[in-house]
Design a protein around this nucleic acid. Sequence first.
DNA 1: ACTGCCAATCTTGTATACACAAAGGTTGAC
DNA 2: GTCAACCTTTGTGTATACAAGATTGGCAGT
Lengths: 216, 216
Amino acid sequence: MSENVGRWLRDEIENAILSYEFAPGERLDETVLANRFGVSRTPVREALMQLDAIGLIEIRPRRGAIVIDPGPHRIYEMFEVMAELEGLAGSLAARRLDKASREAITATHSRCEQSAAAGDSDAYYYDNEEFHKAIYAASRSDFLQEQCAQLHRRLRPYRRLQLRVRNRLSTSFAEHCAIVDAIFAGDGDEARRLLRTHVGIQGERFSDLVASMAAR
Amino acid sequence: MSENVGRWLRDEIENAILSYEFAPGERLDETVLANRFGVSRTPVREALMQLDAIGLIEIRPRRGAIVIDPGPHRIYEMFEVMAELEGLAGSLAARRLDKASREAITATHSRCEQSAAAGDSDAYYYDNEEFHKAIYAASRSDFLQEQCAQLHRRLRPYRRLQLRVRNRLSTSFAEHCAIVDAIFAGDGDEARRLLRTHVGIQGERFSDLVASMAAR
DNA sequence: ACTGCCAATCTTGTATACACAAAGGTTGAC
DNA sequence: GTCAACCTTTGTGTATACAAGATTGGCAGT
């Protein structure tokens, strides 16, 4: 637990939302949350305001907070932006790569290889996250890194759904290989292009995602 | 004034920060703010938490809130991301352009022309903002539009400084012309490329910006 | 029986009060 | 004279109380 009850609550509620414990559209009652976490309403309100600012919930004046339901179309838009930001990160990484970043990328990349070979979807999900974070860091742009991490977090649950799709693991890892090659070769444009297509959801992958969401 | 004191305060304090009334690094005393705006500390705290979530201030546990000083390097990074997002917006706009968006872009573009011809830096500053917003809207991606608008708002004060640089007005408008041509021609790649260079700050423009900031 | 209006209750929004932690100043000891 | 420790003061963090608005259910009228 953080030193600050408000922030701890924010993380707690955020996780609950991202893990669908609080369903989209559900109303979040301040008193109920306060009782559940054993605190008063004040820190709960602070947490809710922050989540509103992040965009996870919507607070309608005098009508309480509801969990936002992004809907397939909006999720597609978010992936579109994510693809663009990751592309930028990749191109910067290719230009500015230093020894430490190179090693971080290599390390996370080989962990992905092991998980993919083992067909362990959950492990790959985690290693994949670390791999992408290594690229953000390699961009050497603090602001970009923060933006990527934030958006990545919001898209986390949908990424997880994506990996369930048949063959996605090996396809994903193959794409990683090409991305790493481009970055290490210093080819910024190629790294950007590859990352854009890797992260974006196009064609049948979009319908796969919608189908997975509906199945939930 | 909004129906909600907290949100009203957030906007009020945000404007004060963006207009340098609250200088970067300055400590924001909750009680002082409460007195100044004639409200209690509770809504002030709510406003501060939201500004912290947005990234305009930093709340250090038990040590209060301070206005974040982005510093030239971070501002550069923010422009870099902004350029990328605007590039995406432009390329989508070129692909998806419809009648209403086309008219909105034409209208704001011609207002920019008038301000530029008159050499009215303040008017151009405003019209330029509308022009860019028209492009965001033309992308037909709600999420992208929101992200662009938010980042645009944070960069607003620095954009203003940029326009003070000699000849920047006419150069900027000339770039607008090319951008409009590319979008209307449906050339997404070209629109993206042009917007990226238009928005980004490269080479001497960066030193211009740093110089303007130092002069403040 | 259905619809519209009013009232009661529940929930949010704001204020105030109290507790606790940190920073700075002052005093005492070495 | 200098350094450290303690105390005071200031300001944040949390809780509770009170007020205002929204929603829902019931009652009455058509």
